[in-house]
């Protein structure tokens, strides 16, 4: 395994930040399109610089911490959120050559570990804010994200069993014949749902639930600290989309077009799907969300593991 060039290590986070910022604009334009309205279209070509303008606005806002908040944790929470998402990108193989650490032999476990740490961002934010709405949001987040992590981990096992490796690079190369979405369709669906829940996006945005909790866990946040939650959420969307691409859609592989374009296309389509979900669906109630997880997704992913195992046993050489 060769050391990745330093430039890649520096550029990757910057690129992801830029993409996340761009995504805030893309989402608003797409929502506008689907909701029969314009969305931001005034600043720059097609409103493209709206994202920049928003960034400037957030940066120049007063950096305010509510007097009743737990100051240290209040500052720490958004940083955790941002960092865990960014670190996860390290193991994503964009192409066979473009990645920081895609050969890491526990790559998939690393991603799951980072996502688990990401829960702390939301829970700590809710707790440190010392506000009731934030607390309720944090409570919901803790229950929802910890539960859905279980199904997420379980749903992945099928892929790991077929590949026999936790390395994301190996997982992609194992799909050169058939994308895992076909043999692992149940795992794909569970992973996708769990991914939405992990990024707490509508319809699983209960930790925020603006109609109920104002803004949920980040009610008390403003300025760039809010901006970090905001960007972390969008980076999270890109991350989950990139993961789905890697795990189930054959990663960079595809005919004719260069690999990097394939990767971008697949990820982009999934990101658009995420946004479409937000435009289309209402939000289930907290207990309904939990019931879906434990009563449907858990059995499905367990069955999936059992089925995958059986098939592998039957086809095992010798």
């Amino acid at each position: 395994m060769t050391q990745p060039p330093l430039l890649t290590i520096i550029l990757t986070p910057l690129l992801i930040l830029a993409l996340a910022t761009l995504l805030t604009w893309v989402e608003r334009r797409l929502l506008g399109l689907w909701q029969d309205r314009y969305g931001p279209n005034r600043v720059g070509p097609g409103g493209l610089f709206q994202a920049v303008a928003d960034g400037i606005k957030l940066l120049f806002k007063q950096d305010w911490i509510p007097p009743f908040a737990d100051k240290a944790v209040f500052i720490l929470a958004p940083a955790i959120g941002m960092m865990t998402v960014m670190l996860s990108f390290a193991v994503i193989p964009v192409t066979a050559r473009q990645s920081i650490a895609d050969h890491l032999n526990v790559g998939l476990l690393f991603v799951l570990a980072m996502m688990s740490l990401g829960v702390y961002a939301v829970v700590l934010a809710g707790w440190a804010s010392n506000s009731k709405y934030a607390l309720l949001g944090g409570m919901r987040a803790a229950a929802q994200m910890i539960s859905y992590e279980v199904f997420m981990g379980l749903s992945l096992l099928g892929v790991v069993m077929i590949t026999g490796s936790f390395s994301l690079h190996d997982i992609v190369t194992a799909q050169s014949g058939l994308w895992f979405i076909i043999p692992q369709c149940a795992g794909f669906v569970v992973f996708l749902l769990a991914g939405i829940a992990e990024t707490h996006r509508l319809p699983f945005d209960l930790p925020e639930g603006e109609n109920e909790l104002g803004a949920g866990f980040h009610t008390e946040y403003s300025g760039m600290k809010f901006g970090m939650f905001f960007l972390a959420e969008y980076a999270g969307i890109i991350l989950v989309s990139a993961l789905v691409t890697t795990l189930y859609l054959g990663g960079w592989q595809g005919p004719l077009l260069p690999p990097v374009l394939w990767f971008a296309l697949k990820t982009g389509a999934l990101v658009a799907f995420f946004i479409l979900l937000r435009a289309a669906l209402p939000r289930p109630r907290y207990d309904q969300l939990m019931a879906l997880g434990w009563k449907v997704l858990l059995p499905v992913s367990l069955l999936n593991i059992a089925a995958t195992g059986t098939v592998l046993m039957l086809h095992a050489p010798g």
């Binding site: 929502l31 029969d36 509508l202 945005d205 109609n211 435009a279 289309a280 669906l281 209402p282 939000r283």
Partner: peptide, 16 residues
Amino acid sequence: MAQDVGQLSPVFYMFT
């Protein structure tokens, strides 16, 4: 009403 249960789009169509 749709907005209150978290559905974002209908309110735009109905306001149209």
